Amino acid sequence: MALATRAVNGYTWHNAPDGGACFVDGSGWIYVSNSEVGSGSGGASALRFNSSGTVTSAYRILSGTTQNCSGGATPWGTWLSCEETDLGYVWETDPYGTKAAVRRPALGRFSHEAAAADPDRRVIYLTEDVPDGGFYRFVPTTWGDLSAGTLQVLRESGSTLSWVTVPDPDGSPTRTRRQVSGMKKFNGGEGCYYRNGTCFFTTKGDNRVWAYNAANNTIAIAYDDDLTPNPPLTGVDNITGTSSGDLFVAEDGGNLEICIITPNDIVAPFLRVTGQSGSELCGVAFNPAGNRLYFSSQRGTSGSSSGGITYEVTGSFR
């Protein structure tokens, strides 16, 4: 079911919908979606649902920013909206629309893609969408407060991984990814999702899904299309998961599918969008009950940013 194309209850839904997440709202929920538009025209909006799943309102929660691609939800109920542009920022926003968005420069300035909160180690993981990007983590001085802390990047020496502090998170004049010798490079970081001690993230340049085991400080490739006969998943992008352990990965390109990766490493298409070859799928997120899946086709049937469509798929899911 298409939820949002141009207008919802008098509110004009934003262009180029991208990364998204859901938040509890009383007996209902809120779906937040980024707007990947340039030149200060980006930002994020929200759809509010009642307990029966009916949209009751829509509203803006971030304006005046650039290329808001993906992001991540925090355990304290905010949405981190990431600017995918050189020296881009992370903005902490209020899904409920009551508090003003706050820029969080301590999380670094680079081509941000996605964020994932790890409440066990009390850090925020961050991906970088460039061919020689880093995989970062932000360690807040106080958990729940992103105004201050330490930005670190993953370094690899032989078979040993370590987190090294980025000397200048501002990234100017030397970009963050060029400040730490031996930084492990990832080819086009995309979606990021944390669950039970593991942070899963995707890289579009080599079409891989990575699994960083935070407890053991090890990293492995969970999916690689080059190692998979007749690969069903190409153009990896946003990623989310379910309580059953399944991962859902949206395609930017390929045949516009959302694919599932099971705990038993079975990879298969879940859904496909047709007639929208000029678009990409993004914003995959489940509502709190886990029985509704949201995603967007960023440019819809028109192939332009103004043609974006946000969808809802009802479960049950596994």
Rank of each mutant, 00 (worst) to 15 (best):
I30E: 08
A21M: 03
G133R: 06
V37Q: 00
T127N: 09
W143N: 00
Y125Q: 03
R48P: 03
C69I: 09
A16W: 11
G42V: 12
S111A: 04
R122C: 02
E92Q: 03
T65C: 09
Q67S: 15
V139F: 03
A117T: 00
R121M: 12
G19P: 08
N15S: 14
D129I: 02
L146V: 07
W79F: 12
G19H: 01
C69F: 13
A101M: 11
A106P: 00
W29R: 08
S81F: 11
G88C: 05
E36C: 03
V37D: 00
S45R: 03
R6S: 09
D145P: 11
S70A: 14
G134S: 01
Y59V: 12
A114F: 12
L47Y: 05
R104I: 00
R103V: 11
D86R: 12
Q67P: 00
A58M: 13
V24K: 11
G42L: 05
C22H: 10
C82W: 10
R48D: 00
F135N: 05
A16D: 09
A44E: 08
L87F: 13
G20N: 10
L126G: 07
W76L: 06
Q67T: 14
A7C: 10
H112L: 01
R103H: 02
S41Q: 15
Y89S: 10
R109L: 11
L47S: 04
A116I: 00
G134R: 04
R48K: 14
P131R: 06
S41L: 15
G77P: 05
P95H: 09
A100N: 08
N68A: 13
T98H: 11
S51D: 13
K99T: 03
V37A: 12
L47A: 08
S51Q: 15
P95D: 04
A7R: 15
A117W: 12
S51R: 07
D120V: 15
D120N: 10
L146C: 01
A115T: 15
Y59G: 07
S41N: 12
F110M: 10
S27D: 14
S27W: 05
Y96N: 05
F49P: 03
L80M: 08
G134N: 03
R109W: 06
D129R: 02
C82M: 09
T65E: 12
A101C: 08
G133Q: 04
E83G: 01
T93S: 06
V37W: 11
I61V: 05
S51H: 04
D145Q: 09
D86P: 02
W76P: 01
Y125M: 00
G20I: 03
T78R: 04
A58G: 13
S27H: 14
T142L: 12
S33F: 15
S63C: 04
V90G: 02
S52C: 13
A44D: 04
S63M: 06
S57V: 03
S63A: 14
T142P: 06
A114P: 04
A44R: 00
W13F: 15
V130Q: 07
G97D: 02
T141Y: 09
D120T: 13
G43D: 02
W79H: 02
V37P: 10
S27K: 14
D25R: 07
P140M: 07
G28F: 15
D145L: 10
T54R: 12
G10K: 11
E84A: 13
A16H: 13
Y125A: 01
V102T: 07
A115M: 14
G26A: 07
H14E: 06
T93D: 05
A100M: 02
L62D: 01
S70F: 09
A46T: 12
W79N: 06
S35V: 04
